[in-house]
Computed example of a mutant assay.
Amino acid sequence: MNKAKYTQEVPEDRNEVLKIIQEEKKPLKIMILGGVDSGKTTLTVFLANELLSQGFRVAIVDSDVGQKGILPPALISLGFPDSIFTTMEEIKPVKHYFVGTITPNQFFGEMVTGVKLLVNEAMKRRADIVIIDTTGLVHGSGVELKRMKIEMVKPDLVLALQRKDELEDILRPFENKTRVIRLAISENAKLHTREERRQIRKEKWKKYFENSSEYILDLRKFYISGTLMFQGKEISEEEKGLLESLFRWLIFHGRKIASRYFVVKADIGSFPRNFDKNAMNAVDLENLSNLLIGFIDKDGFCLGLGILKLINFKELKAHVLTPLNENEIKNAVEIRFGRIRVREDGEELGLLHRDAL
């Protein structure tokens, strides 16, 4: 289930980094950068265990939403390992931030905000060393994402695992602002196919949801975020009938937000339907089935995940599967909609575009 396991058989430059970390003034923030399968999590596990064994209080911020070590995926998580551990999955998280998808694309705001808030939380809890594990998105838009993370977190040390010079576009602006150490990628680093990474996630989803129960939740008792679905005003019966007639839809729910319509619908018949997407957002009802949601507390942190099974729009009731118990759900003030559909057996059903909801 985990790609990275604790080993002391590491390239010599890792031990040199360890000596530098030991000598640096504390508290210390360390951000680890690298492409896909470059060994970021393996390095995180190695450093954390070695520093723990020397008596340091270590915090780990796991922001690799697609290949999370600290369960579950689709969140950014903060953990404080209190003893030697083999894999990150053994670490019990103390805080999560909801991203709601397995890829940072289209979700830069959530990625940067989550990392910043959890690093702050780690410092409040008096961590000596905070290690930030990041995603493998380092090209194209990934350069901007990493720039924003570094600017917001202001790490004292950036560890860059790179093949040739692939991270230089990220590192160059920070050469004189923070300490950057370039590391070679271990010859033991294993490349995983897309399907292998998907299978790893499947096992993690399944483990997270394995002891879940289904609850019927009154949506009027929560603030709903991450979607336009309940903003604005409910459309009139006349508007509903006109839209159904024009586009041959069955509309289950409709809102008008300023001058734009938002409808949840099912198609009647199969033929092209053209409309101005600046004037209307139309969501297929089936795209809400098995959609990931987050239960958010009063401080904006995520208490845990749920899988949306059904919404009764007339009664504003939602059927949700979650491992959280009733008391934990009562601590949530907000339900936030994600953009990945996943079953409780771990099978991923697809990603929705940021603007879909």
Rank of each mutant, 00 (worst) to 15 (best):
K3Y: 13
E9Q: 14
V17K: 00
P27Y: 02
P27T: 01
I32N: 06
I32Q: 08
K40W: 08
T41L: 06
T44S: 05
L52E: 13
S53Q: 15
G55D: 08
S77Y: 01
L78T: 07
P81D: 10
F85D: 04
T86L: 14
Y97M: 13
Y97S: 14
N105E: 15
F107Y: 09
G109F: 14
V112D: 07
G114T: 02
E121I: 05
A122I: 00
D128M: 06
I129S: 02
H139W: 07
E144I: 15
L145S: 05
R147K: 13
E151N: 10
M152C: 09
L159N: 02
K177S: 13
N188L: 14
K202I: 01
K204T: 11
F209W: 01
E210I: 06
Y223H: 14
F230N: 03
L242T: 12
K256G: 02
K256M: 09
V264N: 11
P272V: 05
R273M: 03
A279F: 14
A282D: 06
L288F: 15
L292A: 01
I293N: 03
D297L: 08
L303Y: 04
L308G: 05
L316K: 15
L316R: 15
A318S: 12
P323A: 06
I329T: 01
A332M: 06
G338P: 05
R343N: 13
G346D: 00
H353G: 05
H353A: 14
